[in-house]
Design a protein around this nucleic acid. Structure first.
Lengths: 180, 180
DNA sequence: CATGTGTGTGAGTGCACACTTACAAACTGA
DNA sequence: TCAGTTTGTAAGTGTGCACTCACACACATG
């Protein structure tokens, strides 16, 4: 055996998050994920339950990585006040999405929520993130809501490339958003 | 002649916004748009420059309808203060997206921004909306930014179906958002 | 009526891609 | 060493779909 199936699954999931992030579910052939992972298409189908199963598993991996990053960020704030912890989590999230894979994957997943399995995975992912942010920061509901609202705005800024637009309307939207 | 090409284009665009909103660019066959518009697939290809041209035109129609709705909403606020005008615009937007087509189309368009023509159309659309909101409301950049941030949060709530989730984390995210 | 112009379609064509199957090679244990 | 299990693939198969083309009908204008 060259490798265990479990290890292969992990590398395939990394490749899948990256590939799906760039071109989305329907425009990303499984061959692209397989090639990025360095294995054959057929083996991807053995490791995961179809393309949809692969995408759902990738969503799980994506949100997992987000929660881990937020945990690490919150750790840097120790047991400071809610605002400080949220701020630290924001910084950690900004660093995490520097490579854009996790951000773009979330956008792509949101766009495929007409498939029930994906909608469920997205809900599960945000449940993990939101409950963690809430409990770890101890912030109010309104503060948590604001945290996610500006996070979603960040998604728009990056997907539309607004940080490259020098006009006033774009600068208004991007002002103060941490290095998108 | 049964109809003018221009009139056909308009009905096709309505069908396209609706169809693309539900299943996205890559998962929506042109036959579906054609069927919804009541014409043949071949004629859609004569009216628009390929599937991509159709999608870009639909994006234009989508943002056009949004600006019109915001204008009407702002009109109801007259020349009140920035907060009141923004509030009225928010109400108008909430009403407009009750059928979800315009909201979902924006999400789908964001997901296809790896295609340069789509990214350009999205930027153009948000440019129209943002400049109008800014100038018509006279609100500060920070207020405009907040307006869009919570708008994007609304998109997440609707796509993920969070308004159906009774758990505390979901209620924190949906609190106070106008009937998504 | 003849010619032209705009509206509209049926019937393809070719290709990309999800998924399967049959088979091979590596490793394990007795 | 030989049987069984796991890892891995090459080579299909079928289908859905973007896009084309030849052709038909409606209407105008001389």
């Amino acid at each position: 055996m060259r490798s265990t199936a479990e290890a292969r699954r992990a590398t395939v999931l990394n490749a899948a998050v990256s590939a799906f992030a760039r071109t989305g579910f329907h425009a990303t052939p499984v061959t692209a994920v397989a090639a990025a992972a360095g294995i054959s298409e057929a083996y991807v189908f053995r490791l995961f339950a179809g393309k949809l199963g692969l995408f759902v598993a990738a969503a799980g991996a994506c949100f997992e990585r987000i929660v881990v990053a937020l945990e690490a960020g919150a750790e840097r704030a120790g047991d400071a006040g809610p605002e400080e912890v949220l701020e630290a989590m924001g910084d950690a999230y900004a660093e995490l999405i520097a490579d854009r894979d996790l951000l773009l994957f979330q956008v792509q997943a949101q766009a495929v929520t007409d498939v029930p399995e994906v909608a469920e995975a997205v809900r599960a992912g945000y449940k993990r993130v939101a409950t963690f942010v809430r409990s770890r920061s101890g912030a109010s509901d309104a503060q948590v809501q604001q945290f996610f609202a500006y996070g979603q705005l960040c998604h728009l800024i990056v997907t539309a490339g607004l940080e490259q637009v020098p006009e006033p309307w774009a600068r208004a939207l991007t002002a103060g958003i941490r290095h998108p």
